[in-house]
Design a protein around this nucleic acid. Sequence first.
DNA 1: TAGTCGTGGTG
DNA 2: TCACCAAGACT
Length: 344
Amino acid sequence: MLESSEFNHNLLDWYQSNKRTLPWRQTRDPYRIWLSEVMLQQTQVTTVIPYYEKFITKYPDIDSLAEADEEALLKDWEGLGYYNRIRNFHAAVKEVRDNYNSTVPERPETFFNLKGVGPYIGGAVQSIAFNHLLAAVDGNVLRVISRLDADGRDVARASVQKDIKKRIEEIIPLEAGDFNQALMELGATICTPRAPKCIMCPVQEHCEAYSRNIVSELPVKKKAKRKNEIYYNVYFILNDRNEILLRKQEGTLLQGMYELPKYDVDTSVESIEEDLQLSIDTSGRHVGSGKHVFTHQVWYMEGYVLHTRDRHPDFVPLEDVGGLPMSRAMQKIYEQFEVPAERM
DNA sequence: TAGTCGTGGTG
DNA sequence: TCACCAAGACT
């Protein structure tokens, strides 16, 4: 078990002399902290930084983001992934504008009710911006605590995460924001998933896993399920006006992003004509292949060019395609078409 | 609870 | 190459 006073002192002391705090956190501007926490979920700091800079320049405050067009936001988010994050953040920010006078709620109960605000983001924003005594439990913290306590339970379980959050809140000091960031920083730099640097750890003497020599066995996690492999034919459908057929992705995966029509490889051209309500004139040129790995799926894509003389509401001028939000998956196949087209 | 949701880095 | 993982939330 953690000896709270000595443990806290060692951890905070280490953090003060080693911290590489994200610069915008020093402002304690709750909007900036909130935006960055939304971007940081399941995403590395180095990936987030350019996106954060772009957003904070274009949308420096609650009102400017609330007023933004959703498709423009999606375009700015393009490539960052988990696109529901920006939709939820947009909705939450609009609620703050409309119901809370464009001021980020300082009451935890109010803030936690906003869209996209879960236990981590809620705790992080409320502790860093307002010094509320709440834990911010991310993957780093789960790993750190499971090792300190030699806790062999599956950290993926919500009940275990709740437990760890409660446990931290029993010892969290008044400098709650710094304490949370110190735990995360410790996990990111010392108490790493592989090859942890226990020799440099400021709280080594408090670590149950270290004293039992079982650090490498923790945390315990279930093995990931095998990914589903999907094979698509992807179609570049062109008309005689230098336009290409694009549509908005439906369903839940990549919702709202623009895509080339894609069909399971065994779908006939007749079914495609039926589905799109247009007739294909010439068909067939193969333009390339692409593979994209998602969390739970792998796409294998083959791209083909088709021509039609029909009208269709979803045709887009080729020069406008770059302005529409498109997933990396679709970009991978689209790039292979674009380059040869420019040479024609 | 367990599955879903992107993308890039790493050993 | 490949499995794992990253300042998680929603259904």
